[in-house]
Amino acid sequence: MSETAKQNTPSAERPRLQDTIRLSAQGFAKVLGDLEARVMQAVWDLGRPASARVVHERVIREHEVALLTVITVLNKLVEKRLLRRHKQDDLLHYEAAWSEEDFRAHAARRVVEGILSFGPAALASSFIDALAEHDPDQLAELERMIHERMQREER
């Protein structure tokens, strides 16, 4: 989904994310629950519509959890508009409503929008410092992206 398409996506179709960010969590668990993040990852890894049992088999490879718990989480993710559910061969199958890449971009944007409440200058400074510590090579990429965006704005 392109950036323009994401911006034009009606709010009724956007995923519902919690308003809090769990700083100590890793990856998507920052904006989803731990098990929700594991279930989403399993669905993305499968790359096709799958029954709850198939998703459960993926999840329990790394995290012991009951099948009924996974079913509950799958249905919550449908309510949050992250998954779609349909009947196939008399079984409910679940598939991702958003690609992993598109959801990552959406979640990151929501996090950044929340952090902007601290003020744009504080965000920019902190972001550059954190990026320099985490992945210095990305600073050059950030500079390129800034220049590209500025050129588009000038047009």
Score class of each variant (00 low, 15 high):
K6G: 08
Q7L: 15
Q7Y: 13
N8H: 15
N8T: 06
T9F: 06
P10F: 03
E13A: 13
R14E: 13
R14A: 08
P15V: 05
R16P: 01
R16E: 09
R16L: 14
T20A: 13
T20G: 03
T20E: 14
I21M: 12
S24E: 15
S24W: 11
S24A: 14
S24M: 11
A25P: 02
G27L: 07
K30T: 11
V31D: 04
D34C: 00
D34P: 07
L35D: 09
A37F: 06
A37S: 15
A37Y: 07
R38N: 04
M40I: 06
M40A: 14
M40L: 15
Q41F: 07
A42Y: 07
W44G: 05
R48V: 11
P49Y: 12
P49H: 12
P49F: 12
S51E: 14
R53E: 12
H56D: 02
H56A: 03
E57A: 14
E57F: 02
E62L: 09
H63L: 06
E64V: 11
L68E: 08
L68R: 13
T69F: 04
V70T: 09
K76F: 00
V78D: 05
E79H: 03
R81H: 13
R81D: 02
R81C: 01
H86K: 10
H86C: 01
D89N: 09
Y94R: 01
A96V: 01
A97D: 04
E101I: 01
D102L: 01
R104S: 03
A108W: 03
R110I: 02
V111R: 09
V112A: 14
V112R: 10
L116C: 10
L116V: 02
S117N: 09
F118Q: 09
F118I: 08
P120H: 12
L123G: 02
A130Y: 02
L131A: 12
A132F: 11
A132Y: 12
A132I: 02
D135G: 03
D137R: 13
D137A: 14
D137F: 05
Q138V: 01
L139H: 08
A140K: 09
E141Q: 12
L142K: 06
L142R: 06
E143S: 11
E143R: 10
M145C: 03
M145D: 11
I146D: 00
E148G: 07
E154Q: 12
